[in-house]
């Protein structure tokens, strides 16, 4: 109903606005200086941290370091099992968290009215979930996934064996991480759903598409870049967390790689923690520690980067 209309121009006084901006102008320099200082401090921090790690770590990294297991009680050898474990953990987590998060966001955005009690309750729960300290997620994973779900499966199906699922394992660690990263995926997806113009959804409905068809054929394809953003953020967050996996599946040292979902695994973040705190000779493990930190950073960066590339490819394919 918006059309060009000749309505009398309101005599809103332009003079008044000029006076206002005079008042603002004089105080512009201090905020600019403050904000610039803040930026410089942050940039310096980042530079110091990264510089320290890169300088000390880059000499350690070679093919052997990346492809061999630790030796001599962590004082030698490589970190391959930890790299493998981290990638496997994050992939499993993504497989679990993205569908649940996306479906939740679609439910919240497409199927409920934003002001209903239920919606507000769910939103509140999601926000609170995002604020829970990660160690609590670790304890939750231990209690719920291992103690309740895992033990439950064991008593039902493996009554005469030792613990099969009721023990720390990569599946439980990744599920715990996916609970931790769920809010990130939900929020990012909702953000993406919000950007889809109503007109496009209307066009689909007006062509006789059902709501479900509209969601599958129009809403989801167009919010894929946003969904991927959510996945990226979840991966970054998940790959760096140690506390949630400490009790739920990460191992101090394993002579083999995880083969099954109920195997334990080594993980870079946990490996760093172990080497920094549990090693008998801190000085001897220090170079390896730096190398491991650098690898973890690079790995997270690479995961992020590949997701960003996929996202931008999708954007250019979808839009213009």
């Amino acid at each position: 109903m918006t059309g060009i209309q000749l309505s009398p121009v309101k005599e809103s006084s332009p003079r008044h606005n000029i006076h206002e901006s005079f008042g603002r102008k004089s105080s512009g320099r201090i905020p600019a200086g403050l904000t610039a200082t803040a930026v410089i401090i942050i940039a310096m921090m980042l530079f110091i941290i990264l510089g320290n790690i890169v300088l000390n770590g880059v000499g350690v990294i070679d093919w052997k370091f990346l492809s061999h297991p630790p030796e001599n009680g962590m004082e030698g050898g490589g970190i391959f099992p930890a790299i493998f474990g981290t990638v496997a953990l994050v992939l499993l987590m993504t497989i679990a968290v993205v569908p649940v998060g996306v479906l939740t966001a679609i439910y919240l955005h497409e199927y409920t009215s934003p002001h209903s009690k239920v919606t507000r309750l769910i939103r509140m729960a999601i926000n609170n979930l995002a604020g829970v300290p990660s160690i609590v997620f670790g304890l939750f994973g231990l209690g719920f996934f291992i103690g309740f779900v895992g033990n439950g499966i064991d008593t039902l199906f493996y009554a005469d064996e030792g613990p099969v699922w009721g023990q720390p394992a990569i599946i439980w660690a990744s599920l715990t991480l996916s609970v931790l990263t769920l809010p990130v995926v939900i929020v990012a997806t909702e953000e993406a759903l919000r950007t889809i113009p109503r007109e496009i959804k209307d066009a689909s409905l007006a062509l006789g598409a059902t709501k479900l068809q509209t969601i599958i054929k129009v809403v989801i394809p167009n919010s894929l870049p946003g969904i991927l953003t959510g996945a990226i953020l979840a991966i970054s967050r998940g790959a760096g967390e140690v506390a949630p996996i400490m009790f739920t599946g990460a191992a101090y040292y394993l002579p083999y790689l995880p083969q099954k979902l109920n195997d334990q695994f080594m993980e870079l973040g946990y490996h760093i923690y172990v080497m920094a705190t549990q090693s008998p000779d801190i000085e001897a493990t220090k170079p390896i520690l730096y190398g491991t930190v650098l690898v973890l950073l690079l790995l997270t960066f690479m995961l992020n980067f590949s997701a960003i590339i996929i996202r931008s490819k999708m954007r250019s394919k979808n839009a213009h």
Binding site: T2, A203, A206
Partner: peptide, 11 residues
């Protein structure tokens, strides 16, 4: 069928 005010082709 319906045609809207703002052209709204799908991407």
């Amino acid at each position: 069928g319906m045609v809207f005010q703002k052209s709204n082709p799908f991407p």
